[in-house]
């Protein structure tokens, strides 16, 4: 019994169990530890909006990890993921090659970014926060915002997607901790320089929690409304477990269904940092095991 003329990929899968979904059709290294994948997922490509993410699982005993949908191609029915190797799960994913299949992938999840013409927007991204920022920048530009990007990393080699960001935005300011490229200093220095020189209507920040915390403290001082996209630990990604919970304005919120973006000035970043470290010991052990193999 076949399901006819529907969801092309579904139809194929149902008819022919050998055909699977989530095929990797391209792979590119942005740096030794950052990989860009294009993955076949027509339904997700069709439904996703800027700010959405997917849950990905590699292998039968794999872990479910959240990854932002960096881009989508409706024609090809693909989505783009940019992955930074952190521990076991992201490393297993990065080890996949073109033609391989991602065992499980579900999405698009989370709330889409609220996009409107705010005026001038700073997008402050650090490290792997750059990839998830891309679709937000594109969407903000599309409705007429002036978008200034602050790209930050420890050192020159870790700056990714600079070219793509330049093409999308009005200006890109590169910051490196060691001064090996762009201006020397932390992301906050770059953000502050823009705030000091012109009126800024919104700041969006994505990156390590500690970075978002300091960006948030800074913009609070200058009273610039700020959105942070939070990358908490997740299990299901659909609001079922509460692993992703954070305190926002004193209320407990689930990042996967209420977020991932929140008013940064209301987020309890210290609690979030504490919760992110929750599984550190177990994860380090697992990584050691994996590295041995």
């Amino acid at each position: 019994m076949a399901i006819r003329h529907i969801f092309s990929t579904f139809a194929l899968c149902l008819k022919n169990p050998v055909i699977r979904m989530n095929k990797i059709i391209s792979k590119e290294y942005f740096s030794a530890n950052v990989v860009k994948f294009e993955v076949e997922a027509p339904l997700i490509a069709k439904a996703r909006k800027a700010g959405h993410f997917v849950m990905v699982k590699v292998g039968a005993k794999g872990e479910r990890i959240p990854l932002t949908i960096a881009d989508a191609d409706l024609q090809k029915g693909t989505i783009t993921l940019v992955v930074q190797k952190m521990g076991v799960s992201s490393s297993k994913l990065c080890a996949l090659e073109v033609g391989d299949f991602i065992t499980d992938m579900v999405g698009p999840l989370g709330r889409a970014t609220h996009i409107e013409n705010f005026g001038t927007v700073i997008c402050a991204c650090g490290g792997v926060g750059t990839a998830p920022m891309m679709p937000i920048v594109a969407a903000l530009k599309k409705v007429g915002n002036r978008v200034i990007i602050v790209l930050a990393a420890r050192t020159k080699d870790l700056i990714i997607l600079e070219e793509q960001m330049r093409a999308l935005s009005d200006e890109v300011i590169v910051m490196t901790d060691d001064g090996s490229y762009g201006t020397q200093g932390l992301v906050t220095k770059g953000v502050e320089s823009v705030i000091n020189r012109e009126k800024v209507d919104l700041c969006v920040t994505i990156g390590p929690a500690i970075m978002m915390k300091f960006v948030s403290l800074l913009t609070k001082k200058y009273e610039v409304p700020t959105l942070a996209s939070l990358n908490t630990i997740m299990v299901d990604g659909t609001g079922m477990c509460g692993a992703c919970r954070v305190s926002v304005g004193g209320k407990t919120k689930f990042v996967c269904v209420d977020g991932p973006e929140f008013d940064a000035h209301l987020v309890d970043f210290d609690e979030m940092l504490m919760r992110l470290g929750g599984y550190k010991d177990i994860e380090q052990e697992e990584m050691e095991q994996y590295s041995k193999q």
Binding site: F10, M21, L43, I44, D104, V106, G107, L109, T238
Partner: peptide, 9 residues
């Protein structure tokens, strides 16, 4: 059909 959230996917 697994990995399919009705209301999302």
């Amino acid at each position: 059909v697994t990995n399919c959230v009705v209301g999302k996917t």
